[in-house]
Design a protein around this nucleic acid. Structure first.
Lengths: 124, 124
DNA sequence: TGGGATACTTACATTGTTGTATGCACTTAC
DNA sequence: GTAAGTGCATACAACAATGTAAGTATCCCA
């Protein structure tokens, strides 16, 4: 079996492509950003990330946990208390996803000015 | 009408969320990374990005062009010659998407070691 | 004279993603 | 006692994303 020294996202079969996909999925990135500074519980994440459904949050968390990027801690209490933190690898990735989203947030006015079409301009 | 000073990706209606989505879409990120260092023609991009279909490449390019991140130049020749470059804003974003993918590529062995499930390990 | 390359577009079918609604077992607050 | 909160799982339906295949006009090469 081949030893891999580094990935190549341009190769469709490379696992790095899948990981990249997970962390840039519709909700994956937002979850990582939300956990960047603090450990959060399920319901807190749900409230923080506007528009996410419980189903999608649960699914996204499982994928990221499966990739070893977040850590799930079940306190075994009733009513349930479970919280989520980033692992070291998760923190690295989160920082980079945040750098991207932060740049977009900061430069949004300029970005909106660039777009001739109204598509991305839809405030509201 | 409200003046926006910066975006907020956590708000579902914020345009920054849509832009983030575009640049982290299945093919959007790869296109931006591919154009990071050089201007490329349609067919070159197609060959570079393993697995993308013509349909998806065309669509992705249009979205990113609509966001003002890439510039399309049609030389008006026959047979057709068209090439794509990043705009200044596109370069900024591309650099950040690349930082993310590059970290993943470089740390792929460690990342694979983290995953207990075989899902992300599927080489081949 | 036939085949491949170029940069797409369009129609159609399939697959994948996402939302909605419901249920669970139990607690605390009103 | 009633409602709301907790962290999910599950079934189902709707919708969005994607792939496949074909077509376009022209050129170059063998």
């Amino acid at each position: 079996m081949p030893n891999i020294s580094r990935g190549d996202v341009f190769a469709s079969a490379c696992p790095s492509r899948q990981i990249l996909q997970h962390v840039t999925s519709r909700w994956g990135g937002l979850v990582l950003i939300a956990l960047r500074e603090e450990t959060l519980r399920f319901a807190q994440l749900r409230r923080r990330i506007d528009g996410i459904s419980e189903r999608m949050l649960a699914q996204t968390l499982q994928v990221l946990e499966g990739d070893g990027l977040i850590l799930r801690t079940d306190h075994g209490e009733v009513p349930p208390r479970v919280d989520y933190t980033l692992t070291p690898a998760g923190r690295e990735i989160s920082a980079r996803v945040f750098a991207l989203s932060d740049w977009i947030e900061e430069n949004l006015p300029e970005l909106l000015a660039l777009t001739p079409n109204a598509a991305a301009q839809t405030v509201q």
